[in-house]
Design a protein around this nucleic acid. Structure first.
Lengths: 251, 251
DNA sequence: CGGAGGGTTGAGATTCATCAACGCGTGTGG
DNA sequence: CCACACGCGTTGATGAATCTCAACCCTCCG
């Protein structure tokens, strides 16, 4: 039975999850044969720190977050926030030992779960699948590096600026508008600050030509965020090295 | 020509790099055929942010560190510190795009360099090698998660405590003594604090039964560090769940 | 002997978290 | 239909924690 048929019609086309990229139909078929789709209510804990990892979770719709939690104070450190098309727990599956992270739904969510055994076996059978895993995990790791840098040596303004820059490039650099994909408190925690400082930082951004209206972010011009560029963002910015980006600290 | 012969006699046995784990002789041979050993002086930059990644670096002797650097202020955020047997840039190779990190020697160092093309090809040819890469990268990622947690929600004391706990478990939990493997300023930066606060935090540790004498750390008893345990460290601690570790915040 | 680098200690400044209050939109139940 | 509570975001006042800057000690090495 083809489980993709039970997905929303346009899911595979529109989201095109990295996990399935370039997989042969037969390979994908086999992978999905043993997977299940689940609906979860908001706030449901799918994995807890210390649990044995059992699935890779692929978000069909809704929002998930992965985070670590402090036993004493109960404070949370957000590791990632996932939208449809994103996956989590792939890395955990392969590092051995219990899960170092919690996974929780933030909204009501629909999730595709791929069992641990199937994934591991398939990684050995299909080199392309293994490559996809490797690519996904390394991207996560790259992201983690940015988080580490942010919390070590970046000011709140720089953190928000960099986050905005990424979202801006996501939306296409010709687009002077984008939306915050998650609620502000969650973004704040992800960026290692309190909701209060996040809010105050947003006000600072207005001085740099960035207007905030609820979830909508409007930039005065396409270079308002150039100030926050680094070599990683430069490599995905079409305008870089076209002389147009002068504010860029790399020059 | 077998390049392992040019390594110190006992390197492979004693260090047993994760990268080569469980590889067949023939596979290892092929991998090493195109690799080179280099000697570098202290402070040499092997990779800079923005560079195209060209090698995996395996430390034979000496110390390397990977870090990100802030363009404006020039401040550094340490990502990892490597000793002999450790590798870096495996993750970068597979994430595509320019390197997000710098790699620099901290001491005079001897390094084995495996060219990018060879590694990628070999990852497709030898599933065990691909698995090794996946395992290594996920371990790095796990580590990065700990760093993120530390800087988000842990106090300097907790960060140092956790770092000590890991080193203690490394040395064997029966061993009441271990050494700091790197100089203090580097550990401090890695833990996201200044050398000054690191120093002051070390003094606090004395109140918890930890004596510091230069690089030597002596614990009053084997449970002095239990306070800093979490589910990740518990899973590698032999004494956990033996009733002996009561200070553990998990109970 | 003198200089350099790493580590420690102290005093002061700064920044961000904390705590508290409030506005606003939404959903709920009377 | 209104009253109310609730969650989220914002704003302001306060305080604590860590960074900064400076001085000093020590060891190592030329």
């Amino acid at each position: 039975m083809n489980f993709l048929m039970r997905l929303p019609e346009n899911f595979k086309e529109h989201q095109n999850p990295q996990l399935f990229e370039k997989l042969k139909e037969s390979s994908l078929e086999k992978l999905l044969q043993h997977s299940v789709i689940q609906d979860y209510e908001s706030g449901r804990l799918l994995v807890q720190q210390g649990d044995k990892p059992e699935y890779i979770y692929l978000v069909i719709s809704g929002v998930l977050k992965t985070f670590r939690i402090d036993a004493e104070e109960g404070r949370e450190a957000t590791i990632r926030m996932l939208q449809s098309g994103d996956t989590c727990m792939e890395a955990v599956l392969f590092m051995g030992g219990p899960s170092p992270i919690n996974v929780q739904t933030v909204n009501q969510s629909k999730v595709l779960q791929l069992p641990e055994r199937i994934v591991k076996q398939h990684a050995l059978d299909d080199a392309q699948f293994a490559m996809n895993l490797l690519r996904i995990v390394t991207r996560h790791y790259k992201n983690a590096m940015h988080q580490i840098e942010a919390m070590n040596i970046k000011s709140p303004l720089q953190r928000v600026g960099y986050y905005f820059l990424l979202k801006h490039l996501d939306a296409g650099h010709d687009n002077l508008e984008f939306e915050l994909p998650f609620q502000k408190q969650m973004i704040a925690n992800y960026l290692g600050m309190t909701p209060e400082t996040f809010s105050r930082t947003l006000k600072q951004m207005k001085g740099l030509g960035i207007e905030i209206e609820g979830e909508k972010i409007k930039m005065r011009d396409a270079f308002s965020l150039c100030h926050f560029c680094d070599s990683d963002t430069a490599s995905i910015c079409d305008n870089h090295d076209k002389g147009s980006c002068k504010a860029c600290p790399l020059h």
